[in-house]
Design a binder for these strands. Sequence first.
DNA 1: AGTGTATCCTGCAGGC
DNA 2: TGCCTGCAGGATACAC
Length: 292
Amino acid sequence: MPELPEAETIVRGLRPTLRGARIVRSEILHADVLRQEPERFRARVRSRTIRNVERRGKNVVLPLEDTSVILINLGMTGRLLPRRPADPSTSHPAVRFHLVEVPGPGSSGDEEPPGTTAGRGVLVYDDVRRFGAVEVLDAAEWRERSAALGPEPLAPDYDAERLGRDLGTSRSPVRTWLLDQRKVAGVGNIYANEALHRARVHPRRPARSLSPAEVEALHRALQRVLQEAIRARGTTLRDYRDASGEAGGFAPDLLAYGREGEPCGRCGTAIRRLVFGGRPAFLCSRCQPEET
DNA sequence: AGTGTATCCTGCAGGC
DNA sequence: TGCCTGCAGGATACAC
């Protein structure tokens, strides 16, 4: 996916247009992205107004006015693309939400005049690989789901002390630990590798083996790389697009991820790629020694 | 508890 | 040109 900075970019882009819009109808083109029966899904979102557009970890969250939420996990290739009703086409549509702006106070009816297109729009959940998920949760289900996710790494109270405490006694490689959404929410393979490179910590070091100084460095690196990536509107390697269909601009700023064989920006040593936990890790073996 | 493997699915790059 | 294999920002279930 889309990791935290990409989800944040999408959310910021969608907020102005989606806030206050009402879902009049939804179209399910690929039921396998839903986590519930299509009929039930449609019924639960129909006629609901989208109160806001939020993010939790890598997830896009649309709180509805009845306190339920639409939860969207973008998987590897999920996109949220606003379209005009006249041309709602995207390459791999899975779900389409047909929207209408809610009439303001003083406006008369609930029914929009037939034939009108003004104020209408379509939000398309598009997903080539369909690893993503779209679901409706009631308030209690969402509370439970959110509680199962780790803290937001950019929250003001997420300090190095908290990170150090959470790393705790885990013998897992620190890269694996960072990818676990229950430990910290929103970090994926790109930013885990980038943060570790910046912090000069080898990805395979056991989580609990980091010194206080390394925990401090990792905390700072993680916050910085996520913030810088948000500022650049995310990383596009291949598939990621924001709500306007634009690629992110952070890829040239990656120092390790995907740069096997290229010189480390800090010391010139060739970046190495190794695989563990089923995923590639990228590191500079000089800046990030495995043994300390 | 931690780790490797397979699974969902499609598209693309690289080798031959 | 075409066929085949492997790989991909994720999440989860399983066996050991």
